[in-house]
């Protein structure tokens, strides 16, 4: 009984690492766009398909494929911001929201047209089946690597945002773009770089999502909701908070799944709404 409970919790924590990967980019992009990127989940899915095509097409190791995709993802995020989102960003939420909404639908149906509706999975090689024993528990190596990747990525982003010049630029511009331009900075250039970084986090998330679970052209909205819930649960703007939010969701889903498989997703939403009711600022608000 105790072992089963511990196992559920541990699995929840492990899946929480993946959810945090989904959420990091969304958290960062809200500061840039002043709106939620509704296509965030679909961006993750489209990069997963890109990784799939590269890995299977050239017979490359998936992590090598990820290394190739990272710069592309940076440029993709940069270009998306500079040539599309920037043109609709302003004081109103409506325009950026609807543009990303349109993108989401285009991506979902474009993938359906190009790859069909069958679920896919990324080839993880030997990593897929390896199991390690920790404190007597048999844990898959892949979930552990995913959680480790989330922790490393959060650490790196935290350093980048709070300890580097680029990070200070991004924080300054998202605090007060008007004041930033008063010292000669171009907010749009900085926003582009920030969205490029978001693109790279999306690529990492895409890689691990595809390694850990099935995906199909309609997986995007589910990812978006998970990412959104993790961000709000963790406390807006807090990077380590998103990990906590992801873990809370993962554990809630795990416990729900123990009651009945069909309760898994619903349990996550219910915990999210319950926390929203009692603690709207999230668990670890930054300010």
């Amino acid at each position: 009984m105790v072992a089963a409970i511990v196992n559920t919790l541990v699995q929840g924590v492990l899946i929480g690492g993946l959810y945090a990967l989904f959420a990091l980019g969304l958290s960062l992009s809200v500061g840039v766009m002043r709106a939620v990127n509704v296509a965030h989940g679909d961006f993750i899915v489209v990069v997963s398909y890109l990784l799939l095509s590269i890995a299977t097409g050239f017979g490359l190791n998936i992590f090598l494929a990820l290394a190739l995709v990272l710069p592309v993802a940076f440029l993709g995020g940069f270009a998306l911001q500079r040539y599309l989102l920037q043109r609709v960003s302003g004081k109103a939420v409506l325009a950026p929201l609807l543009v990303t909404f349109g993108l989401a639908i285009i991506i979902q149906n474009g993938l359906l047209e190009g790859y069909g509706a069958d679920p896919r999975v990324l080839p993880g090689g030997a990593l897929e089946t390896k199991v390690v024993s920790i404190f007597g528990m048999q844990l898959g190596l892949m979930p552990l690597v995913t959680l480790a990747a989330a922790i490393v990525l959060i650490f790196a982003l935290d350093r980048l945002l709070y300890k580097s010049q680029v990070g200070a630029l991004i924080r300054a511009v998202s605090d007060d773009p008007g004041a930033a331009s008063l010292i000669g900075l171009s907010p749009n250039q900085v926003y582009g770089i920030a969205m490029g970084i978001v693109g790279m986090t999306v690529a990492v998330a895409a890689c691990f999502m595809g390694l850990r679970s099935n995906f199909d052209p309609a997986s995007g909205p589910g990812n978006l909701l998970i990412a959104f819930e993790s961000v709000v649960l963790g406390g807006l703007g807090s990077l380590w908070g998103t990990l906590a939010g992801g873990v809370v969701l993962g554990v809630a889903q795990g416990v729900g799944g123990q009651i009945d498989f069909a309760w898994q997703t619903l349990a996550g939403h219910i915990v999210f709404l319950a926390v929203l009711a009692v603690r709207p600022q999230g668990l670890f608000p930054r300010y």
């Binding site: 200070a168 924080r171 300054a172 605090d175 007060d176 008007g178 004041a179 930033a180 008063l182």
Partner: peptide, 10 residues
Amino acid sequence: PEGRRLFPNL
């Protein structure tokens, strides 16, 4: 600028 417009969290 009026009100200084510093970046408060930097």
